[in-house]
Design a protein around this nucleic acid. Sequence first.
DNA 1: ATGAAAGCGCTAACAT
DNA 2: ATGTTAGCGCTTTCAT
Lengths: 328, 328
Amino acid sequence: MAGVSSATVSRVINNHPNVRPEVRARVQRIIAETGYQPNAAARTLAGQRSRIVGLVIPQTAHILFTDPYFPRLIQGVTHACQVHDFTLSLFLFHAVEDEAKLSTRILKRQILDGVIVTATQIGDPLVREMLASDIPFVLIGQDGTEAVSFVDADNEAGAYTATSHLIRLGRKRIATITGPMNNLAGVNRLNGYRNALRDRGRRAEERLIAHGDFTEASGYAAMQQLLAHHPDAVFVASDTMAVGALRALHSAGLRVPQDVAVVGFDDLPHSGTFNPPLTTIRQPIKRAGMIAFETLLDIVEHGLEPPRRIILPTELVIRQSCGAAALS
Amino acid sequence: MAGVSSATVSRVINNHPNVRPEVRARVQRIIAETGYQPNAAARTLAGQRSRIVGLVIPQTAHILFTDPYFPRLIQGVTHACQVHDFTLSLFLFHAVEDEAKLSTRILKRQILDGVIVTATQIGDPLVREMLASDIPFVLIGQDGTEAVSFVDADNEAGAYTATSHLIRLGRKRIATITGPMNNLAGVNRLNGYRNALRDRGRRAEERLIAHGDFTEASGYAAMQQLLAHHPDAVFVASDTMAVGALRALHSAGLRVPQDVAVVGFDDLPHSGTFNPPLTTIRQPIKRAGMIAFETLLDIVEHGLEPPRRIILPTELVIRQSCGAAALS
DNA sequence: ATGAAAGCGCTAACAT
DNA sequence: ATGTTAGCGCTTTCAT
């Protein structure tokens, strides 16, 4: 004790106004000298705030988890946590059964001030559960539910830009490899592709649309399937699938970009080192993670209403795989 | 209330023996019906156990964090946490300054029952700090400190196997791209390489040893450097660096495995889809994460002494890049 | 501006 | 085998 009551120490730590500056300074000195840190459990119990948020990654994302997308996202969220002196807890579901534990183990124990949920499918039961529990939460990406706060990239605009770019380069048979159709990012990127063609008086040919699931293997399979219809360009809805597509193209002896131009989506850390370096739509993954946290914090502190709906811009990053570099 | 005191409820929840079976059943029924979950903060405060462990990833690993190695590891740790009803908190350091917060923010607040630390450098100050704080912790990998519990792959044996394999295939000028020399995995893999050559009466040529830092870019640079000395094989100390090495080889117009055989280390999820598919040393990354957690749990429950030192076996996975497949 | 005291929801030691 | 009670270390009224 530094000559004051524990109540005063508490006021100092929590920056309450009613403390004489000189007392405050003295207490702070003692804190620094002794290396005192308040016990987190006691604060949580007394104050009803844990300063812990959860990052929930559903089972559907399990196979995607080694994709560099998630590390980037985690970097963003942890960085924001760091800045605001929050702790991040990770909930990674390995099987569908695990998700049943979400409500009991995670939500009802009141350890979390809020939750960030990522990579949901359309109408994800996880989201319904969260909604029912009235815990503050924000989605990264959308699940199609109205009145849910989210941070998302402008998937449709990004896909539109990518496809327009290929049209502008004079490509005639522009195919696409989509994401999963039970995922709104997958759907929106396909919409962007369709709209870009439509706005230039072309109709999307169904044979030039192949579905993937955001994995590299699915990109490979989808590209092989498209080959039969001789595309001269392909917009791939994720960079990871683009890796697979490039492999399929190489195996078939086709040159990129001369025979087939390729544009991806994501701009992952290694996309610039693909062979050839990948032209792609950059989405600010790390920033999305940071903004998701900050939005969540705002909700925790100022209430759930109205739902925050944040859409982040994307940009076209031109490298070699689209053939534009060769022209200029 | 189900007709009993809170103490009895507590006994039921914590599986204390002294409860009549019929009372226990009744209480459990009520718990199930009401969906009651004990408040985690109160339990922690009263019981001195939080059932939360931390996973600490130092700043030195920041640039490596998008490597699929970390997701695998995280999958292992979260899976084990799931099974034992623990929660995982992630501490990812973005800058050296952040690490200063480890002790104050993380260790002294007593939120964590224990900590798993990964990817340390030799003599990492982080480890010294943990040691000083007497919190239970285990390393994934080693930092060279004696009397510290760790789980590690048998890096030296793995590298020895890889190099021996290349020798057996008749390669004469076997180079290596190493990991960083301030990292014990890097050092041990180099030792394995040297020993394999020595045991077959060869001397490692210093010109055929190029240093990398486990990033793809460093693998590319190191391979370019080695090219001047005309290796006919190269053991690359990580699959991610092998991607870079393969790129350098392709750019130089060399064929893999005909001109240069390549063997990697890790067996990351995508290593089988490289061009050509990569022969590599598989280390059980996910399992290392699980075992690290279980070892930590053992330490938390049964004390720090003696330090657990666990070394996991590796295995050679033969694919196309080493040229063995072509021979058989 | 500060201190005293109640209480957050549990666990554990002590009675019975 | 079960209930009673005293904390765990804070925050937050309520006095002063």
